Computed example of a mutant assay.
Amino acid sequence: MPDSSGLTKSKQKFCKSSSSCCSIPSDSHTVPPVLSQSGGICRQNCNSGLLSPLPSDSFKYLGWCDIEDHDVRGNQLHCPRVREGPSKEELFFRGEEHALKKREQVTDTEKWQKKLQENWENCAELNLSFQDLGDLYQVENFKRILRRLIRVERLWLVDNSLTDLSAIRLPRCRELNVNKNHLTSLKRLPKMPQIQHLSLAENNIMTLSGISDFRHTPLESLVLKRNPCEFQERYRQLVFSSLPNLKVLDGIPKLPEDSSPPGPRFCFRLCTIL
């Protein structure tokens, strides 16, 4: 549950409703909490010695829009946690069926209400970095959200292990940061006709192939540092010749020598032997 939602009232309600799932030890028999194999915190029952779930365990895989009695919408959160919880098979493997029961009790009406509450279509600025997308279904859910960002203007997707966003269209996006991902080509970027500032540092982009796709965009600044393509011969000249509107590359403004067209690979000079 992301801290940005600030749903203290809802948290109290869940804790109260789940209080029967755990026993609170008395002051004279206080047992410290321990870390379970599934990564969650459990409190050890002082009588039986067994681990019992904490009150929060029943909703630890729920997103903010799954919690009742609040009116927070997706476009009000600047850095929400949108990663889906473990799959059904993973929950059974972990022995956490109680979380599965809660997730399965969702009607079609509730799904539609959730979609309205997410309200991604009205997001203008959004940070979806560091989502820890470890499974394919989590990546697919992440892309589902990206496809709904039809009005977003500033978007951060840093360190999400993304490899291909070519099926995504961001019609109003002016600033995109996809640093520290696994992109291997400029052709795998989203369609962004209004892009002005694009940062691709620390990916694995090998060549400048596909850079001409941004030729007719208002792209002013581009960051490609710490990509293999940065070591290509006449790298800056090639980039600026492909992008006539570009003003800044890798944080350095356009220099006079960047305007000259890329020359031949080998340069021959005449010399006089005395």
Score class of each variant (00 low, 15 high):
residue 78 H to Q: 11
residue 203 N to I: 04
residue 63 G to M: 06
residue 67 I to C: 06
residue 15 C to W: 07
residue 34 V to N: 05
residue 74 G to Y: 06
residue 175 E to H: 12
residue 83 R to W: 01
residue 242 S to V: 01
residue 10 S to R: 03
residue 215 R to K: 07
residue 251 G to T: 05
residue 178 V to G: 11
residue 144 R to F: 14
residue 169 R to Y: 03
residue 122 N to H: 15
residue 47 N to S: 12
residue 250 D to H: 04
residue 128 L to W: 15
residue 196 Q to C: 13
residue 49 G to M: 14
residue 123 C to A: 15
residue 123 C to P: 09
residue 15 C to M: 10
residue 33 P to D: 05
residue 47 N to M: 11
residue 116 L to A: 08
residue 201 A to Q: 12
residue 243 L to Q: 05
residue 182 H to I: 11
residue 189 L to F: 08
residue 113 Q to A: 11
residue 250 D to V: 05
residue 183 L to Q: 06
residue 218 P to S: 07
residue 2 P to T: 10
residue 37 Q to V: 14
residue 163 T to L: 11
residue 101 K to C: 00
residue 268 F to G: 05
residue 170 L to D: 02
residue 239 V to L: 01
residue 10 S to V: 13
residue 182 H to M: 14
residue 59 F to Y: 15
residue 192 M to H: 04
residue 153 E to T: 14
residue 210 G to H: 00
residue 136 L to K: 15
residue 247 K to G: 00
residue 92 F to C: 00
residue 172 R to Q: 15
residue 253 P to A: 06
residue 80 P to Y: 03
residue 268 F to P: 01
residue 50 L to I: 13
residue 137 Y to R: 11
residue 225 K to T: 11
residue 26 S to P: 02
residue 231 F to M: 08
residue 206 M to P: 00
residue 133 L to T: 02
residue 113 Q to W: 03
residue 97 E to P: 01
residue 101 K to M: 00
residue 268 F to A: 11
residue 245 N to V: 01
residue 187 K to P: 00
residue 180 K to D: 09
residue 43 R to A: 03
residue 232 Q to V: 09
residue 210 G to K: 03
residue 145 I to E: 03
residue 107 T to H: 06
residue 232 Q to C: 07
residue 116 L to M: 09
residue 22 C to G: 11
residue 76 Q to A: 15
residue 225 K to A: 03
residue 130 F to A: 04
residue 177 N to L: 13
residue 176 L to A: 09
residue 122 N to D: 13
residue 241 S to H: 11
residue 239 V to H: 04
residue 85 G to H: 02
residue 178 V to A: 13
residue 242 S to D: 04
residue 56 S to I: 06
residue 220 E to M: 13
residue 137 Y to L: 12
residue 18 S to R: 10
residue 1 M to D: 01
residue 12 Q to D: 13
residue 1 M to W: 05
residue 160 N to M: 05
residue 205 I to C: 06
residue 1 M to Q: 05
residue 50 L to N: 15
residue 138 Q to C: 07
residue 192 M to T: 14
residue 86 P to K: 02
residue 43 R to S: 10
residue 40 G to R: 09
residue 196 Q to T: 14
residue 78 H to C: 09
residue 253 P to G: 06
residue 170 L to N: 08
residue 150 I to S: 15
residue 187 K to S: 12
residue 214 F to K: 02
residue 43 R to P: 00
residue 45 N to G: 04
residue 121 E to T: 04
residue 264 P to A: 06
residue 273 I to M: 13
residue 153 E to V: 04
residue 4 S to K: 05
residue 17 S to A: 12
residue 124 A to H: 15
residue 255 L to H: 07
residue 232 Q to P: 00
residue 266 F to G: 00
residue 219 L to I: 14
residue 38 S to V: 06
residue 222 L to S: 08
residue 193 P to A: 06
residue 97 E to A: 02
residue 227 N to D: 08
residue 159 D to W: 08
residue 203 N to F: 08
residue 36 S to V: 04
residue 266 F to Q: 09
residue 220 E to P: 00
residue 93 F to T: 15
residue 44 Q to W: 00
residue 7 L to A: 04
residue 219 L to H: 09
residue 78 H to G: 11
residue 114 K to S: 03
residue 208 L to R: 02
residue 269 R to E: 12
residue 258 D to N: 14
